[in-house]
Design a protein around this nucleic acid. Structure first.
Length: 275
DNA sequence: GTAGGATGCTAAC
DNA sequence: TTAGCCTCCTACG
């Protein structure tokens, strides 16, 4: 479930459970074993997220750079009472385990898990766009690029160089919430539309961090409010269009459409999203 | 049991 | 534009 909100939540969870303490570091699966040995016993000094990139900071300006990609998963365990027996053995797919005497966290299937320097970390920040979840990030740079681009807004929102942290769910949902046709060119958006999208992404993603899931349906459009039977989307939260192909739009009843765009599934309501 | 898909991204053509 | 990477879960026999 890795969009930006997941990563920011992970940064907070790693910090809360392991920050400021020495941790055992291992890589049962092996691909991170050499670096794990170097870090083993070090204090997890800080954690940080930018878009879909997670950074675990250790003394000496060293960082573990993690990117979950499509499949990556993090699983927190413990606290485990020592009397109750040993910590569960990591399975052979665990790329990185941090552990204290009574708690652990396992990382599986990431695209990236690498030990990097502060300069390398800075280079990653430099190639990422502003992140709606980073309080100091300025959307002006993103608007400069969007307002000049002939590329579709659907593609631009997924480009991490332009906006960091938006994935396929938030992309589909925020365009629906603002009634914007996903195929509209970036340069055909108004400054007001962009500001509204940016602000809404911030609000939606902060809520995503808090609930640890993506919920985008306004209270007045919930099944209860619309007088329809309650419904649970199979991916957790409540959404308007994501993965709802051929189902009726919650607002107008039109069949939700789907298409391939740059190798990703796009979903939208052709009636509600025309402007 | 097996195939296929998934909230991502990059390198190579 | 495509293949490839990494893992888990569901649907389908």
């Amino acid at each position: 479930m890795p969009e930006g909100h997941t990563i920011h939540r992970l940064a907070a969870d790693y910090r809360e459970r392991f920050g400021g303490r020495p941790v055992r570091v291992s890589s049962p699966q092996g691909k991170f074993a050499d670096s794990a040995a170097l870090l083993d016993g070090a204090v997890l000094a800080r954690t940080e997220a930018h878009g879909k990139h997670l950074f675990l900071g250790f003394p000496g300006e060293e960082w573990v750079h993690i990117h979950l990609g499509l499949f990556g998963k993090v699983n927190f365990g413990g606290p485990v009472a020592s009397a109750a027996g040993p910590m569960p053995p990591p399975t052979d797919t665990v790329r990185l385990r941090l552990a204290t005497a009574d708690a652990y966290v396992d990382l599986r299937g990431p695209t990236t898990c690498a030990l990097i320097t502060d300069a390398e970390k800075q280079a990653i920040h430099d190639r990422l766009g502003p992140d709606p979840l980073r309080a100091d990030d300025d959307p002006a740079g993103a608007w400069r690029r969007i307002s000049k681009s002939r590329t579709t807004i659907a593609a631009l929102l997924m480009d991490q160089k332009i906006v960091a942290g938006v994935g396929n769910v938030y992309r589909a949902e925020v365009l629906f919430r603002h009634g914007i046709d996903p195929y509209r060119a970036g340069r055909d958006l108004s400054p007001g539309e962009w500001t509204a999208i940016w602000d809404d992404l911030g609000a939606l993603m902060r809520e995503g961090v808090r609930l640890n899931r993506i919920d985008t349906v306004r209270p007045e459009h919930t099944p209860e409010a619309m007088g329809r039977p309650p419904r649970v989307d199979d991916h957790g939260g409540e959404v308007y269009v994501y993965r709802r192909a051929h189902l009726p739009c919650h607002i107008c009843g039109t069949e939700i459409r789907t298409a391939d765009l740059a190798a990703r599934n796009l979903f939208w309501c052709p009636t509600c999203q025309q402007r």
